[in-house]
Design a protein around this nucleic acid. Structure first.
Lengths: 226, 226, 226, 226
DNA sequence: TATGAATGAGTGTTCATTCAT
DNA sequence: TATGAATGAACACTCATTCAT
């Protein structure tokens, strides 16, 4: 049962080996394997991913994978952690601190929407890990720390909003982040089924823009003080 | 790489064979296999599901599966269609036509929330099919027809609301259904990762009740005419 | 590093499938696999034995082996137990109870000598298990019981000898069995090295007959009362 | 299927590298590899031995092994020859020429017993080579020459015994050596199985002492002229 | 001389699928 | 219709051996 297909949507993180570069470069090989593994796991899920294919994608061979990562399970764990690293790094770069609260929320919402659309491999990796019932994420260290900056950042925005009288009181930052993420995760993670079942437009660029405006509307109406 | 675990969350649809029942009952065997397959695919996903286990769960044997369903792929297709059948049937039974628009929306929202929580296998099946990039759902016939009643029903509610001046104009029923589903799908489908990353409470009964109230608030604020 | 070679010295225990016999016969297949495994483990040792070859030798396939025996380790354990079963069964059939003590000892000695020569696979299996530091035999149940009849039998012979004044007092049956086995185990298990290092004759039929007479002489001189 | 275990019973033959010693010392590296290989082959047998582990044990690397020894097979051959060298050297040092025949035999017997017990790696190497059906020893040159001094020495003792009337006539030195070696090889090489099957004491210090006395008794009774 | 990286042919094990009864 | 036996193509993982530096 072959699940995924081609799909090459993970951002290249390794430059092609130049003529000058040495043929035996452990660091580089390791990175190439990791990049290949991210693609493979996102495309096929945990049980569907193939070590053979990862080796081929990485232009390396199976033995190297085992030498560098131990086994499939451990490789998957590294991939999962790397996924969170990359996402949070993206959010960090937003630097919304200088915007007023309303704009900051809107900006985060738009970022999230496009981030989900542009990095479907991340959604698929989340799906995979939840299909596995969190077997691996449970064992990763420092994930809470990795994710807390986002929450703290949101908390600060909400507080500023409260103080300036724009936002109502008592809204939890996690709650708001969940709402924002929810509104895009569902349609963007389930585009294949939803577009068949409800509307073929779902997932298109035009649809997304419209959806973003509706979500903005919804979130802000919820947040604004009466 | 073993993904899923025990988990027995698909509602029994086949009664246990009674003493009276004949040993050779084609129809019954088929149903038992299908029920077993639903559980298996929901628990392990497409690549993780095992024909052996399905046969065992069904109290039957592998050859029967092939005889009745062709192969794993086709069995999966039947499982997927069955999943949609069961869900829509649940919604149909709600019979919200007699409620006023606001109550109807609230009721649908609550139903959706609890339905997702009580039928995680459905979420997992959706995940699986989207991981497969809709490979199978694309080929199922009559799915749009199967799902349209829900949309028509919602459209009617929104219209009633508009007419009575409670709801604002121009809200699309699919849009609203997506919003409602989104708000619960994300946290309930990703409970494992979210509870590790953000808050261990996510997914608990108390959390869900709170979440439902927030979602009601959000959806109604969005729908209500100013 | 390929150790063993051809060598087909385990006694056939399974008749060739006749035209009449059914093609699907679990019991028979299992026996054939076991017979093949005995040969393979004896020839190549534990790490050298190949599941592929066992399957081929058995005229079956690898999946059957796993279906019937679990894995290589468990298959090896069954082989080891079987080896002891066959040996002790051979000794049991000797039925030396009717001979006088001296003749009984001589007979046992001759049997042991020829048994070792005719069943080199047994010696090799012992070697293998001791190379493994008894990893498996330690876990086999009922081995002591399996072997005790031989000891009891010897004890009875020695007692009879004592009473009739032929044998001296206080000789332990295990001690005597060890001596007899030792005298043939070493040269017959190490024929390859010994014949290179000391004398190419070692292991030949003529050599064995001479050796048996020397061993008889040695054992009896040791046993006889002065 | 992992056979051996820890076990560090080969006598150190290489001194630890001192600060003064150069980092690049071909002769030394070669010796260290050989020592490591002896341990490894004795512990795991031919097929179980791992080039990786040998390199690690030697504090060197795999390429060195191939550079110095060609391949695993050839390395094994060197190990095997070395084993015989060390053993015969031990016997040579005994210098029993000054003892009377009876004492000399007893001394050789005791030496053999303790030598086998103290150098189980040698027994294991013999086992291994015989499991391989002498594949390698057959190709080693000069082994007969290496081993003949022992035989000649024994022959001389027996002759002296004959002439002084203590020993009977016509006893072959190889025959006697085989007997002595046999009586200890079997129980000491098969301690693991024998202690499970017959008596847990087998192999203990007390047991060995008792066994030595029995063996002395047996050998001398056999040798002594009536 | 020395080292760590790289590779390809295995090797044990699993699994979807088919066959004989 | 029903069942357990049989099979071959994977698949994760290992290991002897070679290469680049």
């Amino acid at each position: 049962m072959t699940s995924g297909q081609k799909g090459r949507d993970i951002p290249r993180t390794v430059e092609p080996r130049t003529a000058k570069a040495p043929k035996r470069d452990a660091e580089r090989t390791k990175k190439e394997i990791l990049a290949a593994a991210m693609t493979e796991f996102a495309e096929y899920g945990d049980t569907g991913a193939r070590i053979d294919r990862i080796a081929e994608r990485a232009g390396s061979n199976k033995a190297m994978i085992y030498s560098y990562f131990g086994n499939k399970e451990e490789l998957y764990a590294v991939v999962l952690r790397e996924a969170y690293l990359q996402i949070r790094e993206g959010e960090r770069k937003l630097d919304l601190a200088k915007l007023d609260p309303k704009s900051a929320i809107v900006e985060l919402l738009r970022f999230t929407a496009y981030h989900f659309r542009d990095n479907p491999w991340f959604l698929r990796l989340l799906n995979t890990e939840n299909q596995r019932r969190g077997q691996t994420i449970r064992q990763l260290d420092g994930l809470a720390e990795l994710n807390s900056p986002l929450v703290e950042f949101l908390r600060e925005i909400l507080l500023r909003g409260e103080k300036s009288g724009v936002f109502r009181k008592g809204v939890d930052p996690v709650e708001i982040y969940l709402s924002i993420a929810s509104l895009f995760y569902f349609p963007l993670s389930n585009t294949y089924t939803l577009s068949i079942v409800f509307d073929p437009d779902i997932g298109s660029d035009a649809w997304l823009e419209k959806r973003i405006r509706q979500a903005e509307d919804m979130i802000l109406k919820y947040l604004i003080a009466d």
